[in-house]
Computed example of a mutant assay.
Amino acid sequence: MVHDHTSTATPELDGHASQNAGDEAATEKNELKLSAQQKKLMNSVASIREHAPKELSFGIDFLADTCLPISDPGSDTRIYIRKNGNLTLEIQPAYIRNADGTSEFVFPYGSVPRRILIWAITEALRTKNPKLYLGASLNDFISNKLRLSIGGAQVKSARKQTVALFRAQISVTSFAVKGETVKEEFESFQIATSGRLLTHMGATGQDPDENESSYLVLDQRFYERIVGTNGRHGKAFPVDMRVVEAIGNDALALDVYLWTVLRVYRADRGTKAVCIPWERLHSQFGADIQEKKRFKQKFIKAINKVGLLYPGLNFESDRKNFTLLPSALAIEERQLKSRKPKLKAGGGR
C-alpha cells in the first residue's frame, strides 16, 4: 500500500456510493457506477486474483530498468536519454521515408512500441528464431497478435511507431567503479536489421497476396540478449499477459509493472525491501513530466493501478523515497516450467 497521505484506492475508480441510513432505496440506487473501461479493469483484477496465468509474455531487462519515451520527444530531438543509477539508455530516432515521399525523424513512443517489444521477445523465446512473422499485414499483426483495437487514422500512426521501433539506434551503457578502476560496458543495436511490412493505409482494402507476409529479423545482439549465448542466460523475464492487456494504452503503468516485476525478483526473490529516492525514479520514468510533484502524483496513480493487477505487491512511500516492500513474485517459479529464463537475483544493475 502507499502511505504519505496518498489513498490506496485506485484513482481509476472515481465513482462514489453514498450510504444514507434513512434512504429506503439506498441498497438499490446507491451503487458504485463504473465506466466500461473500469468494469473491464475490475474483471481483469478478479480473474488475475482467482486464477494462475495460462499465457506468459516476457520483457527485457534494460527496458524495465529504463524506458522508452511516453510521448513524442519531438522531431528536433536527436537523442533520448534515460538514466537509472549506473545504467544509461540512449535512443537515436529512426529516419523514415513515408509513402507520400516525405521523410522525418521518428522516435518509438507510447504503448504500441512497448507491446510490440513484449510480443517480439516472447515470440523469439518461443520459436528460438530471430526471424519473426507478423502475419498477413501490419493491420493483421496489430489486431490479432498484439490484440489492440485500432483502425483508420490510427493505423498510420501505428505503422510509423512500428518502423521507428525496429529502426531506431539503441545504446545501453553501464558503469561500475571499484577503487581506482572504472568498468564501462556498452552495447549498441537496432531491434531489427531487416523486415517487410505490408499495410492497409485505409479502413478497407484487399488482403496482401497469400504468398507474402510481414516479418522482421531481429538484430543478432538483441536476439542473443533475449535468449542468451555462449552458455550465458538471456535477460528476458516473465510477465502476466493478462496484466499487460488490462493496463492497455497506459504506457507509464506498463513501465511501472515491468519494473516492479523485475525489481521484486532481484530483491532476493521478493524477500528484501528496496528503497529508491524519488529523484532517481523521476530520472528513470519522468522524461515527459518535468515538475517533480506532478511526476510523483502520476507515478502513485500508476503504481496503484499496477497494485490492483499484481497480487502480492507491497509498497509504501514518504516525501523522500518510494519503497518496494517484501512482495510475492509476479510469476511463481513453479509456473514457468521449462520456459523459465535464468535471472540473477539480488542487486541487479
Rank of each mutant, 00 (worst) to 15 (best):
E123Q: 14
W119T: 03
K131V: 13
T102G: 15
K128W: 10
R115W: 10
L87P: 02
E123Y: 03
I81H: 10
I116Y: 04
Y80P: 07
L125N: 10
G74W: 08
P130F: 09
E104F: 01
E123P: 05
T122F: 01
G135I: 01
N98F: 15
I81M: 12
L89A: 10
F107V: 00
G74K: 05
D100R: 02
T127M: 13
L89M: 06
F105C: 07
N98S: 11
G85F: 07
E104P: 06
R114A: 06
S111V: 09
A120N: 03
Y80C: 09
E123C: 07
K83A: 12
N98I: 06
I121N: 01
S103Y: 13
L117Y: 07
T77N: 11
T88P: 05
S111D: 10
L87R: 11
R115F: 08
Y109P: 04
I81N: 11
Y95W: 12
S103A: 15
D72E: 04
S111R: 00
T88S: 12
L89E: 03
L134P: 06
A94V: 05
I91Q: 10
S111K: 01
R126A: 15
E104D: 15
V112C: 12
Y133W: 11
A94H: 08
G110P: 01
I91R: 00
R97S: 15
K83W: 08
R82S: 14
W119S: 03
G110C: 02
F107S: 00
R78H: 14
A94M: 08
T122R: 05
I118H: 00
G135N: 06
R126L: 10
R82D: 05
A94W: 04
R97L: 14
L132Y: 03
A99Q: 15
T102L: 06
E123G: 05
G74F: 00
I79N: 12
